[in-house]
Every structure is written in C-alpha cells, then in structure tokens.
Computed example of a mutant assay.
Amino acid sequence: MADRADRGRREASSTLLPRDFAEATGRPDKYCALHFANLIWALNVAEVMAHPGTAADTLTQITEFAIEIGMVPIPVHREQHGYVLNTWVVPLLNAAQALVTNGVSTPEDVDRTFMIVNRGAPRGPMGTLDVIGMKTVYDVLAYWGAHNDDQQMLANAAYLKEKFLDQGKLGLQTGQGYYSYPEPAYADPDFLSVPQISSASDIAARAMLT
C-alpha cells in the first residue's frame, strides 16, 4: 500500500484501480469507485467501477445514489486506469499540450480549432487543462511519461512545471493558467468569429516558417 499511496500523490486518483484499495477497506464486497468530473454539477457524469469482489447490491446502491444527486451514471465494464472520461481526455490534453510545447500553435488557436469543429463546446483542451488544474495534469503526464518512457509526455510535463507550477499559476483555482479568470478569452463572444480582413497579414506572418 505504501507504493500505491506514493503513486497516488504523484498522479490523479482517477488513474488508480478499485482493487488497489478494496482489501484495505475491511469490507471489499461493499466497495467500488464512483468517479466525478471537474465542475461536477455542470458536467454531471458519475463513473461506476467495480473490482472483482464488489457485490451486485453495492453497485445498485451506488448507482441509485448517483441518480439521486443528479448524476448520469456511466458503468465501466472492467477496471480501467482513467475510467472512461480520463482514458480519452488525457490523450487529448497531451496532444494539445504537445502542439504548444513544440511551438506548432498557440493555446488560443488550439482551443479555437477545437471549439469551431465541436460547436457548442464551452472551452477547448487548454481551457480544460486550466479547469482540471496544472498540478493534476503535470502529475499525470510526469508519471505516465516516465512509466511508458514517453519523451513527448515528459516534455509536456516539464513545460507545465516551468511555465506554470514554478510560477504559482495553477489554472482556474488561482485565477491564472493558460487563461485569466474569471473572464477567460475563450468565453468572449468574438473568440470564434471570422477575423477582419485587415488582420490577414498579421495572421499570415504567424504562419511564416522560421
């Protein structure tokens, strides 16, 4: 358990498995995981994950609880690091961060692209990173980058540490991350607007290879 606890301090709890803690509860048949998203009441999913010893009645009760508090229960059919939500959101954030780390795009243009092709999305990957928090994303990228010897993921973690953590910028919780809060640029009505033609030369200059 010491190794598991140490790992838990370095990465988000959503990357841990119910089996890691079931026996320690003293009542493993009554134990399962219920995982919420950030901005829980607006993004009201609740992922239900069992371990091999979880009783069926336990899963029924926890699912009823999720529904009673206004969540949409998402049953996870087998134990999975990252559940459903973080299994896809971590690769998305890592790919988006790589575009910034490698100087391919600006954070604003990464989010602008995402929000245009996903009309109605309230924010893009970089804004989502702010909401989750720089420390949590750094911990996940640093751990899995080392675990999988993923050099890009490690470079992304190092970028977040240098540009944000070392400067006390933790995202939404401190009011400053990739965006400034409470009025982030991506919430501006003009963020996705077609630009004025007079700005074409400035935009084109940013596409010049250096």
Results as ranks from 00 to 15, higher is better:
Asn148Trp: 12
Gln176Asn: 10
Asp149Met: 08
Leu165Cys: 07
Leu160Asn: 02
Val140Lys: 02
Leu160Gly: 02
Gln152His: 05
Ser193Gly: 05
Leu172Asn: 05
Leu154Lys: 15
Gln152Met: 08
Ala155His: 07
Ala157Val: 04
Ala185Ile: 14
Leu141Glu: 08
Leu172Gly: 06
Lys161Ala: 11
Asp166Phe: 05
Gly175Asn: 01
Thr136Leu: 05
Ser180Phe: 07
Pro184Ser: 04
Gly133Leu: 00
Asp188Ile: 14
Leu160His: 03
Tyr143Trp: 14
Tyr159Lys: 09
Pro189Glu: 13
Pro189Phe: 08
Leu154Glu: 11
Leu192Ser: 08
Tyr179Leu: 01
Asp188Pro: 10
Ile132Cys: 03
Trp144Pro: 05
Ala155Lys: 10
Trp144Lys: 09
Asp166Glu: 11
Gln151Glu: 12
Lys163Gln: 15
Lys135Asp: 15
Asp190Gly: 08
Asp149Ser: 13
Gln176Thr: 10
Leu192His: 09
Asp190Thr: 13
Glu183Val: 14
Tyr138His: 14
Asp190Val: 11
His147Thr: 09
Asn156Cys: 08
Ile132Ala: 02
Gln167Glu: 10
Ala146Cys: 09
Ala158Glu: 14
Tyr178Ala: 00
Leu141Tyr: 10
Tyr179Asp: 01
Lys135Phe: 10
Asp166Asn: 11
Gln152Ala: 06
Glu162His: 09
Asp188Trp: 12
Leu165Arg: 04
Trp144Ile: 05
Gly145Lys: 00
Asp150Leu: 00
Pro189Asp: 12
Gly133Arg: 00
Tyr178Arg: 01
Leu172Pro: 01
Ala158Met: 07
Gly133Pro: 00
Glu162Cys: 04
His147Gly: 05
Ser180Cys: 11
Gln152Pro: 00
Ser180Asn: 12
Gln173Ala: 13
Gly175Ile: 00
Tyr178Val: 01
Gly145Gln: 03
Asp139Met: 07
Asn148Gln: 13
Val194Gln: 09
Lys163Asp: 06
Leu172Phe: 13
Tyr159Ile: 06
Ala146Asp: 13
Tyr143Phe: 14
Met153His: 01
Leu154Phe: 03
Ala185Met: 13
Ala187Phe: 12
Asn156Pro: 02
Leu192Val: 10
Gly171Val: 02
Met134Leu: 06
Leu154Thr: 12
Ser193Leu: 10
Ser193Thr: 11
Ala142Cys: 06
Glu162Ser: 09
Asp149Val: 07
Gln151Ser: 07
Asp139His: 06
Gly145Ser: 03
Gly133Ser: 00
Gly133Thr: 00
Tyr181Ser: 08
Phe191Gln: 12
Pro184Arg: 03
Gln173Ile: 15
Val140Tyr: 03
Ala187Asn: 12
Val137Gly: 03
Ser180Arg: 14
Tyr186Trp: 15
Lys163Cys: 08
Lys135Arg: 15
Leu172Gln: 13
Tyr138Met: 07
Tyr138Phe: 15
Asp150His: 00
Gln151Cys: 03
Pro182Gly: 08
Leu154Asp: 09
Asp149Thr: 11
Ala142Thr: 10
Val140Ala: 06
Asp149Glu: 14
Glu162Ile: 05
Tyr186His: 11
Ala185Thr: 15
Leu172Lys: 14
Asp190Glu: 14
Ala142Ile: 08
Gly171Ser: 01
Thr136Phe: 00
Leu165Pro: 05
Gly168Leu: 02
Val194Cys: 05
Thr174Leu: 01
Tyr138Ala: 03
Gln152Thr: 11
Glu183Cys: 12
Val140Gly: 04
Tyr186Gly: 04
